[in-house]
Amino acid sequence: MASSTLMKPQMHGLLARCLRFHIVGAFILSLGVAALCKFAVAESRKKAYADLCRNYDSMKDFKEMREAGIFQSAK
Rank of each mutant, 00 (worst) to 15 (best):
G25I: 02
M1A: 14
S58I: 12
I28W: 01
C53G: 10
V41A: 14
E64L: 15
I28N: 01
D57E: 04
L29T: 07
Q10S: 06
K46E: 12
K47S: 15
A40D: 06
K47F: 11
A40M: 05
M11K: 10
S44M: 04
H22S: 10
I70V: 10
T5K: 04
I23T: 06
M65R: 15
T5H: 02
F21M: 13
F27P: 07
L14S: 07
F21R: 12
R20F: 09
H12N: 08
H12E: 09
Q10P: 02
R45L: 15
D51V: 06
A68Y: 05
A34K: 04
K8Q: 07
L52A: 08
A2F: 08
L52R: 07
L15Y: 05
L15M: 04
A34F: 15
Q10R: 11
Y56L: 05
A48Y: 01
C53H: 09
D61H: 15
S3Q: 01
K60R: 11
I23P: 01
K75V: 02
M1D: 12
R17W: 03
L14D: 05
A16C: 05
M65F: 15
F27C: 14
I28L: 04
H22F: 09
C53Q: 13
A48T: 09
C37T: 09
K8S: 06
F39M: 00
D57N: 07
M11G: 09
Y56C: 03
A26H: 05
L36T: 06
S30N: 13
K8I: 04
C18Y: 08
S4C: 04
I23Q: 06
K38H: 15
Y56I: 04
V33C: 03
F39V: 01
K8P: 01
E67T: 13
L19T: 08
F71G: 07
L14K: 08
H12W: 13
R20E: 13
A35V: 08
S3P: 00
R54H: 07
D57R: 00
A50P: 06
R17A: 07
H22R: 11
D51K: 08
A2P: 08
R66N: 11
A74I: 12
M7K: 11
M11E: 14
Q10A: 11
F71Y: 15
A16P: 03
V24P: 07
C18P: 03
A50Y: 01
C18V: 12
L14I: 05
M1S: 12
P9L: 03
K63Q: 15
C37Y: 15
K8Y: 04
Y49Q: 10
H12M: 09
K60G: 09
N55I: 04
F39P: 00
S58G: 10
P9S: 02
K75F: 00
Y49T: 10
M7D: 13
G32M: 04
R54C: 06
H22T: 10
G32D: 02
S4I: 05
V33E: 01
P9K: 03
